[in-house]
Design a protein around this nucleic acid. Structure first.
Lengths: 177, 177
DNA sequence: TTTGCCATGTCAGCAGTCTGACACCATGGC
DNA sequence: GCCATGGTGTCAGACTGCTGACATGGCAAA
């Protein structure tokens, strides 16, 4: 993506700020009395990881003309065909209005199909077309490399634990719990 | 935030999808041949955690009329007074154009100050005003509770490890490494 | 010194997302 | 049967963030 430029030798960028946190966890610096250093760093680092992931995914998907939301949508449909727009919205963590636009874009490109009339209630079950499944496979190839980069950075032993902790974080921060 | 409604008894929401992943990690389901189940789940769970964090922070900051970007900006300025707009942008993981708008908003509200003319080069060093520091303290009170929720969910022993792994993830996914 | 390069600030345009609002359908209890 | 509740789809408006582009100010190498 390279949205932030090169930052070759800048003297106070994100990395150096985070490094300062890590290098001096015990120093009684001026801000330690205000916020637990490690505590604050956790939300900061999580934001950082999320932003980096988003950027990496967007960059990887750019050649395929797919946004991250569109990919997430295809991914969900590949796993669970027939999901409605609202269900897809919850699965991709966006509002159902946004998912509606995403879905419309995918529909215009012939990657998904939705019935004109609802077979039950108002929900319109969405399914991948052959082209949609093909696009999903192509997307998986590139996103897989992003995942691999992440996985390679974490020792094998800790992966399951790491994933579990992350899931627990997501759970306790969920909008309504 | 409650942007997703209540989803009381929906039969296929985000939680159940994630649960299906977790419950049957060894089953030779149809998708296992395509993507490592755990691998995919990691990016998915990270997105989930990020979205939840963003939502929780936004909800907590709403009463103070502060966006997450504005809070991040104040936070960075509290730690490192005199940062320029571009440096703040990198620290908050947004483009410098976006940070410029954020900064202008904070400036109009009298929370930060920037000199009219650059004392060195083009960078305009930004500093918190007394009101800005006050707003930062108020914001820290509410965001602290969000952090606490997250911290409480992770066993004490694993926190440092968890944070480190997350930082490593962010590092390997960085736009240019 | 001069030239090329990098970083910064800023303007304009665009895409994506959210909130608010409304209408429709199903299911429940009364 | 009737109505209250909740889920769903959709429209309109607004906001935020990003990309592209340009001009300006240091810095280092030629």
């Amino acid at each position: 993506m390279a949205k932030h430029g090169k930052k070759s030798k800048s003297h106070s960028d994100a990395k150096s700020l985070a490094a300062a946190e890590q290098d001096a966890p015990n120093k009684s610096d001026a801000r330690a009395h205000q916020i637990g250093v490690l505590d604050e760093a956790l939300t900061y680092v999580l934001r950082h990881a999320a932003a980096s992931l988003r950027g990496a995914m967007a960059e990887a998907l750019r050649p395929l003309d797919l946004s991250t939301a569109q990919h997430a949508c295809l991914e969900l449909l590949g796993r669970s065909p027939g999901l409605s727009s609202s269900e897809l919205a919850r699965g991709a963590f966006v509002s159902r209005q946004s998912m509606n636009l995403v879905l419309r874009g995918l529909q215009d490109r012939g990657l998904v199909t939705r019935p004109e009339i609802a077979p039950q209630g108002r929900a319109l079950p969405t399914k991948l077309t052959a082209e949609g499944r093909e696009a999903l496979n192509s997307a998986n190839v590139v996103t897989r490399s992003v995942e691999k980069r992440m996985l390679a950075a974490i020792p094998d032993k800790r992966r399951a634990r790491f994933r579990t902790d992350l899931a627990v974080c997501a759970a306790v921060l969920a909008p309504d719990d």
